[in-house]
Amino acid sequence: MPFKSIKSLEERPDFFSPGHGLCPGCGAAQIARIVTKVAGKDTIIVTPTGCLEVSTTTYPATSWKVPYLHVAFENAAAAASGIKVAYDALIRKKKISKDANLVVLGGDGGTADIGLQSLSGALERGERITYICYDNEAYMNTGIQRSGATPYGAWTTTSPAGQKTLKKDLMGMAMAHRVKYAATASIAYVRDAANKVEKAISLGGPSFIHWIQPCTVGWRYDPKLTVKISKLAVKTGLWPLYEYYEGVTKLTVEVPKRLPVSEYLKLQGRFRQIMNKPEELAKIQSYADGLAGKFGLGPVAQ
């Protein structure tokens, strides 16, 4: 059942406890909270090592009201698969009776870089898991180092002069595995996101959701702007919201008039050094134009 209103989403019980140690305004917390709300009680969460994991499971407390497992940095997909496969076997053998949804919440590093092999294995095997990558575009937990998902031009502690390559196309990789379902998400379009999570889970998987996650510290912005920035990523065409199902890719949020990428970049300290470099801005704009062409977004509003 799609979420027709914000109220219908709000009324779902919460399975993410306050008192966690994520930064004020953290986008990962918003994602974890919405995902657990949608996934519901009969869900098991797996996360690789990263900000979300360390900040929500500081012993002796946990923010997860559903069963939760963290094993290591590079194996969340394998870990989630193991649980799902075990559940399947135990149910078939009548050793237990009730099934559970398996949802991974992985950082971009744990997904696009060190965990890519394990993810590829799980997707290729057709494991019935939902893998959600919360993409804050760097290794935040270890202090903002670049990852394969860091966008062109962004400052990180290991790309002090600005990232020189474009971010990896994670969605392209997921779709190349012929997953059951794949989608992009942004918290600024929370009903769209919630519906995608519900669809991903109900289709059984393997499904993959790539969710942009502004990070106040790493992206250097005022914490109150997390949703604004998530919205601008979509409005500028840098983060088209679409889904892939049965081989067809479909835009879920139309952007008839795009904003220039500078509207998004200028709010973030990580792009400060390129804001007065027109040739750098042009590169990012042309990257956005490329995405717009590919996914059918409108022209940049003058």
């Binding site: 406890s17 306050p18 008192g19 966690h20 140690g21 929500t56 499971t57 500081t58 012993y59 002796p60 407390a61 946990t62 923010s63 009201k65």
Partner: peptide, 14 residues
């Protein structure tokens, strides 16, 4: 097994 069941809301008043 270092298992925990205590919720953060019970002890961390952020």
């Amino acid at each position: 097994g270092f298992v925990t069941r205590t919720l953060t809301e019970m002890i961390n008043k952020t």
